[in-house]
Computed example of a mutant assay.
Amino acid sequence: MTGACRRTALRLGLLLGLLSSAALAGGLADATPATAARPARLSLIIDDLGQHPARDRRVLALPGPVALAILPDTRHATSLAEQAHRAGKTVLLHLPMAPANGRFAWQPNLPRAELQSRLQAALLAVPYASGVNNHMGSVMTTQPQAMTELMRELQRRHLFFLDSRTSPRTVAAASAQREQLASLSRDVFLDDDASPEAVAERFQTAIALARRQGSVVLIGHPYDSTLALLERELPRLAALGIEWIDIGQMIAIRGNRAVAAHGRGGIYR
């Protein structure tokens, strides 16, 4: 898929996100299993990029629509975002959130003006970002007011949000849904345990989930074990009956609906 096609798919995803609240008001069923007419689909995001150029290059070299989540406070953030954009990849700002710290981090009790200033600075460090996902954030994503303010700001900037779901108490996706912001939630972390055996097991879990619920949103990190598995297994997805799609297409397909693990009737808990 070309860079132009990716951007078209993302725009469609954003439009459907804006329309999703009307559909949700009428009540939506949870995701349904893949069928012959509805293939199983997978979207892949690699977090924590911008720190190691050799690993970043391996991510860029993956053959399909991988999305790159780039940390703003890394030495290579800006140059990597520019390279990813030229390669037609989707760029995300991987925004640090408490318990993460640093000059870009969103933390509780910071005034609204400071939060907005940090977001603006982070977006300048990661040009061409189409959306934002949280780096860490097990504390910050549980703060309803801050998450509402974030989603309103992203709506104003025409950016989407991906909830990495680093806490079972996250309200980020629910806040995005209430604000009619185009958004997604992570289904599977590929490498909480970065041993090759564990990464392989999690990848198979993701494939099974895609088949069961029709789609899966998968997040990994630039570990050697993760990249080795992806380099080996991603070219085989089509033979497994899995369609690897851009994150914008996944937004369009899910239409801001929560899958069963994250809510009921399409509404995030």
Score class of each variant (00 low, 15 high):
residue 109 N to G: 08
residue 122 A to R: 02
residue 174 A to P: 06
residue 102 G to Y: 07
residue 142 T to V: 00
residue 139 V to F: 05
residue 158 H to S: 13
residue 179 E to H: 08
residue 137 G to K: 07
residue 148 T to H: 14
residue 127 P to A: 11
residue 160 F to G: 08
residue 102 G to F: 12
residue 108 P to D: 00
residue 138 S to W: 01
residue 114 E to T: 15
residue 152 R to K: 12
residue 177 Q to K: 04
residue 133 N to V: 00
residue 178 R to G: 02
residue 152 R to L: 13
residue 106 W to P: 02
residue 122 A to H: 03
residue 99 P to I: 12
residue 119 L to D: 07
residue 161 F to K: 05
residue 168 P to Q: 13
residue 168 P to Y: 11
residue 174 A to W: 04
residue 177 Q to D: 09
residue 142 T to H: 02
residue 138 S to K: 06
residue 98 A to K: 01
residue 110 L to I: 04
residue 140 M to K: 03
residue 155 Q to A: 13
residue 132 V to H: 05
residue 179 E to L: 10
residue 145 Q to I: 08
residue 164 S to G: 10
residue 105 A to Q: 03
residue 122 A to E: 07
residue 145 Q to K: 06
residue 179 E to W: 09
residue 177 Q to M: 03
residue 175 S to M: 14
residue 170 T to G: 06
residue 160 F to Y: 12
residue 171 V to R: 07
residue 176 A to D: 04
residue 138 S to D: 08
residue 108 P to E: 02
residue 157 R to Q: 14
residue 152 R to N: 04
residue 154 L to G: 00
residue 124 L to V: 15
residue 126 V to Y: 11
residue 124 L to A: 15
residue 107 Q to V: 09
residue 168 P to V: 06
residue 144 P to Q: 03
residue 167 S to Q: 02
residue 103 R to Y: 09
residue 117 S to H: 12
residue 145 Q to V: 09
residue 177 Q to N: 04
residue 112 R to S: 15
residue 170 T to M: 05
residue 103 R to D: 13
residue 133 N to Y: 03
residue 98 A to H: 05
residue 134 N to K: 05
residue 166 T to L: 11
residue 96 P to L: 07
residue 105 A to S: 09
residue 112 R to N: 13
residue 100 A to R: 09
residue 168 P to R: 06
residue 168 P to A: 08
residue 111 P to A: 07
residue 167 S to T: 11
residue 144 P to N: 01
residue 138 S to P: 08
residue 142 T to P: 05
residue 118 R to P: 03
residue 116 Q to K: 08
residue 158 H to F: 11
residue 122 A to K: 05
residue 113 A to R: 15
residue 138 S to Q: 04
residue 97 M to P: 01
residue 139 V to W: 01
residue 152 R to C: 08
residue 164 S to C: 02
